[in-house]
């Protein structure tokens, strides 16, 4: 195992440019799972812990909320300005692991790890987040909803580092998030969904129902067109076209699909008999 510890961002990008096998590590909360059983001989880590001054800051600008790459869940939970405009970030952060994980785990790490069950990602996609990537070649931004290309596959090139995540500030009138785990806390999501409505329209984003966290565009379109469902089956028939859930140790494809439809049907923003 090799650990490289750059002391500034520019050094980090140089190292990444020179070695395509480096794995950046921030909070380490994903990397350290099963650590004793993980083969380490060929593991090369890029330790980001000394880049705090450049990558941690979190700020609200006129147009955006910007989360630096080392911003933790706990930073967001305790940052008062977020509660009014981006409440789902706090909802989601509070449901990640336990407090120990929340204080170490980072939003950028959650994006980079690319788990289909990532709890921080659905709410960020629902807020139209963009990922700011940097490398020796320059900077670019990628919408988070287009960031994933397959299971654990992303648009980040080997020499790129996530520098920040930017969420546009907008008027939004619906913010709703529901995580279903096998217990109330310390659980990996079986099915989760974030719904936001604002100037940009409806956003419906689900996790643990596809190879990566995904927007449910058919459901969004149905909401835009003034859907008025009379039962959960009606939503099931729509959302089934947005997702591709599987059976695994944690749940079943059938459960994931049904529960997603039922959560949406009974959600407070959904028109129809459930909220009559």
């Amino acid at each position: 195992m090799r650990v490289l510890t750059p002391h500034c961002l520019s050094e980090a990008l140089d190292l990444l440019a020179g070695d395509a096998t480096l794995t950046p590590v921030a909070g380490g909360t994903d990397l350290l799972v099963s650590w004793p059983h993980r083969p380490k001989d060929n593991l090369s880590l890029l330790d980001l812990s000394r880049l705090h001054a450049e990558l941690a800051p979190m700020r609200m600008t006129d147009g955006h909320l910007e989360l630096g790459a080392l911003t933790t869940y706990w930073d967001v939970i305790t940052y008062a300005p977020i509660a009014g405009e981006f409440p789902l970030l706090i909802d989601a952060a509070r449901q990640v692991g336990a407090i120990q994980i929340q204080t170490r785990g980072t939003w950028a790490g959650n994006v980079a790890n690319a788990s289909p069950a990532a709890d921080g990602v659905p709410v960020m996609i629902a807020y139209d987040a963009e990922v700011v990537l940097g490398s020796r070649r320059g900077r670019r931004t990628v919408p988070l909803c287009d960031y994933y290309t397959g299971y654990k596959q992303t648009r980040r090139a080997a020499d790129e580092l996530i520098l920040a995540i930017r969420l546009p500030r907008q008027r939004r009138d619906v913010h709703w998030f529901h995580k279903v785990g096998a217990r109330q806390a310390q659980a990996i999501t079986k099915v989760g969904v974030a719904v936001v409505h604002g100037e940009a329209g409806w956003r419906v984003v689900a996790n643990s129902v596809a190879p990566f966290v995904c927007r449910c565009r058919n459901m969004e379109a149905a909401l835009e067109s003034g859907l008025h469902p009379t039962g959960p089956e009606e939503l099931r028939a729509i959302v089934v076209r947005d997702i591709s859930p599987i059976d695994d140790l944690r749940s079943t494809a059938d459960y994931r699909l049904n529960v997603l439809a039922r959560l949406l049907y009974f959600a407070p923003f959904m028109p129809g008999p459930a909220n009559a």
Partner: peptide, 11 residues
């Protein structure tokens, strides 16, 4: 323990 679920205090 991630996949064999025992209830926690919150449950």
């Amino acid at each position: 323990m991630t996949n064999y679920i025992i209830p926690g205090c919150a449950d």
